[in-house]
Amino acid sequence: MNIFRLAGDIAHLLAVIILLLKIWKSRSCAGISGRSQLLFAIVYTTRYLDLLTNFVSIYNSVMKVVFIAASYATLYLMYMKFKATYDHNHDTFRIEFLLIPVTALALLVNHEFSVLEILWTFSIYLESVAILPQLFMVSKTGEAESITSHYLFALGSYRALYLLNWIYRYYFEGFFDPIAVVAGVVQTVLYCDFFYLYITKVLKGKKLSLPA
C-alpha cells in the first residue's frame, strides 16, 4: 500500500458515499445515469468474486464488500425507492455497445483463460467505459448539479491516482499489470474533458453547464 493507492481508494469511497448521500438527502436521483450505475454494479460483482477464493487483507475485503453493497444500494434507490425521480428520457446510452465489445476483449486479451480471471478482466475493461452513459447524460442535458460534478470528480480522480500508484509500484516493486494500466489510462482520459470543466467552472462556484 502506498500513498497514491490509499488516496485513490479514499477518492473512490468518497465518490460512492457522495452519490448515495445526494440521492438520499434530496430524495431524488435526477441527473444520475441508472445505466452507468447498473454497469458499476456489474463491475464490482464480477471483480470481487475473489472475495470467496482469495484473501488479501481485512482492508481489501472490507472495501470490496462496501463497494458491492453501495452499488446495489444505489440501484435500489434509483430503480425502486426513488424511481419516480429517475430521468429516463435523458438516460439513453445503449449499454450493449459497451458490454459486447468489452466481453469480446476480455475473452481475447486476458492473463489466463479461467472463469474468475476472465470475469476480473471483463470488470477492468467495463469499468474503464462504465461512466460513458453518465457523461452522455450530462452532455445531453448540458448541465449537472454541483453535487453530481463532485461525485464525478471523485470517481475520476480514483483511477488517475491509481495510475500514479502503478508508476510507483513499477519502480519500487517491479509490479506491472498491462491490462489494468491500459484500461486505467483509457478510463482517466475519458474524464479529461470533465476535469477541465470542473476545475474551470465548478471550483469557481459556477454550475457545470456546457456551451450550447
Binding site: H12, H111, S114, E117, N165, F176, A180
Partner: peptide
C-alpha cells in the same frame, strides 16, 4: 505477484 490470478488491488 505478476498479475496472474492474484489481484491485490481494488
Amino acid at each position: 505477484k505478476e498479475g496472474n490470478n492474484f489481484h491485490d488491488e481494488l
